[in-house]
Design a protein around this nucleic acid. Sequence first.
DNA 1: TATGCGTAGT
Length: 701
Amino acid sequence: MAAAGAAKVTAAAAASAVFRSNQELTRLARSGQLAAARRLFDSMPRRNTVTYNAMLSALARHGRIDEARALFDGMPSRNAVSWNAMIAALSDHGRVADARSLFDRMPGRDDFSWTVMVSCYARAGELELARDVLDRMPGDKCTPCYNAMISGYAKNGRFDHAVKLLREMPAPDLVSWNSALAGLTQSGEMVRALQFFDEMVEKDMVSWNLMLEGFVRAGDLDAASGFFAKIESPNVISWVTLLNGYCRAGRIGDARDLFDRMPERNAVAWNVMLDGYVRLSHLEEACKLFDEMPGKNSISWTTIISGLARAGKLQEAKDLLDKMSFNCVAAKTALMHGYLQRNMVDDAIRIFDGMEVCDTVCWNTMISGYVQCGMLEEAMLLFQRMPNKDAVSWNTMIAGYAQGGQMSKAIGIFRRMSRRNTVSWNSVISGFVQNGLFVDALHHFMLMRRGTYRADWSTYASCLRACANLVAFHVGRQLHSLLVRSGHINDSFAGNALISTYAKCGRILEAKQIFDEMVGKDIVSWNALIDGYASNGQGTEAISVFREMEANGVRPDEVTFVGILSACSHAGLIDEGLGFFYSVTKEYSLKPIAEHYACMADLLGRAGKLNEAFELVQGMQIQPNAGVWGALLGACQMHKNHELARLAAEKLSELEPCKASNYVLLSNISAEAGKWDEAEKARASIKEKGANKPPGLAGST
DNA sequence: TATGCGTAGT
């Protein structure tokens, strides 16, 4: 009896010890102290299901999804909470198929399980599957489960479906109504949103704030502030929403007034104000606000550090980072990015290597930094070491190799990629275009369309460029009709690309028509038309478009003058060309760029004024590039000035030592002038310097 | 432990 009693007491003590440890574990897990939670978990002599569930949620919260799964698989016993937590974790990380497979195997599914599964599909845009799960739910379906479905419909643009379900469900609550409303406000349909809002019998702060955020999102700040004034007792989220609107619109004065008038300011309010200053590069105000801010959190630190880093104030950013008392991956990533933008690779590596935890964004930053610095091998090594590659990681490598002229490697990675997206296809297609492989670009566009991938403006821009270069008018016209069908035609960049393509194909009338019909003409549109006339030899028309552009109050930029000068050059308008060239600095206060000099060298050179052209090049404030020497060389060959031609060819081969055609040119020029030794020397350089033909590609996907 | 609103790093 006594022994049994003692055993009971011991068991009770042990149970209460487990209970206390579980409470501590839950506290650690919720306050983000994963390492401490793990230590406690490992040190516990006895654990129950609650212990395991707490550890599972902690791992899931930190994105350690595979560790969570391992723990789940090894649990001695599981209850509904364990199953639900695991399914929710998989769902949160987009692992839809894994979530479903666990859901199917789960014994005794409860309301929560069904809701998580519906929400999982809904958030992934799989509306039919979500609806199927909802329909299969046995007995009385719970309101949250309906709401998850309404939210799915609304956020995926199926507002009518959302409303239909709202009317059909047995017990809609405010969340149901707000979920539907969010579909309208978040897609900027404020007219319908307003109608729906008026229809709502009951409204809470979420409803009002959704409307407010809708006006902000639509960029209608006056409507937003008017609406804000109508809210009887705005809560901190209402204030922050309007504050954020002013900041994003650049109305920093209004923002600050509002911020000062706020009855209570939480960390989000401070962070939004801080971000407002940072975005407008008002760094002094930002730093002052940051100093004054009570309760700075990781977002505050990241905001200020990234602002300083972007502005190149790397020492100040580093000093701040050193003052941080806690670990923040985002802030370190921002500083790393700042270093990499300025080619300070060693400093970036020091941060990267010193990080004990490093997430996908951080790895991607380092990889893309290497790529930007031209260090492709280092990027590849990191890419291979990286544990959880996402689409950004793959796409960065593809784009890196493509831009580095290594299309075979780019394609190799592209082929190994299991879940390609639009960006992946865009990277290879634009890579082909940049490397002059226009047919391959269009071929891959065809392959892309054969899959279920959706082309975006970037895809079309690359393909149109390919058409322009191939003078493939009919393909261009097909792309034009695809653009109309896809709805991208109203984007100004698509219109601009079309103008260039039609013009380059010699269809200047069609180009002009697109231009005339365009709603949002910008400087690029004008430049495209001017350049179009220029490349069709219609110099006078190019100049008259230029005049029209000025009459419309559009200020010409450097690119405009590249078009105008080449128009003059093609049409032999020497005096006009010289006039425009001098006006670049005198009238328009622009800095002449190398392309302007190349046009002028071409203009003067074609007219036989080789010495004047050469003098112009010699007097350049900036370093002449290959285009400039190439233009001069062309003119020299036209007018048989061997001496100057040889000089230009030499400069060219200095600037592009790996381009074989430069040595061939130099060799031919020397041979023509009877300088056989030098001709031979130039030929030898091809092998010696390992000069290559432009990169080609064997085979395709 | 779910469903509707505000902030940071590629």
